[in-house]
Amino acid sequence: MNGGELPSVPRVQILFGEIVYWITIVSAIICMVGPLVAMLAPENNVVNPYFLFAAIFAGKTAPEVWAQASGGFPGGHFYWHHLTTGDGFTQFGLALGCSVALWALLAAAFAYVKERSPLYTRLSLGVALLVVLSAVGIIEVH
């Protein structure tokens, strides 16, 4: 069917797009402010940014870079305990952006339930579950 009537965009699709769009913008703003906070109080970071950048540009590996933190790498979700530090706050922004699909897919699944579309409800929840499993580190190949 090729015609001239303007087709309506499904509501679930608009909902998904809006959630992704706005969370991405919030995540970007956090990632703008985070480095400033880190440089304002360099001691109040998991790794002092002066030594962090020196290590990165010396070609050191990720574990070697994090080795400068007391106790090494504190784990991917270290922002929960370091939200007031510059790198903790920046990591929170990254984590928020990296989980955006989860929030949008949960909302989409809910909308698909209302639309009575069981196949896409299940698929949305399935992909959301993949994000959750990946984010909590339950599945690991090694």
């Binding site: 985070g34 962090l52 790498f73 991917g76 989860l102 984010a135 580190g137």
Partner: peptide, 20 residues
Amino acid sequence: CVAVWPYLLHGAIIPLFAAP
């Protein structure tokens, strides 16, 4: 969003390096 987490959980994403 699925693929990036193994990197985040292993510290391969350095927040101050990735943010800009």
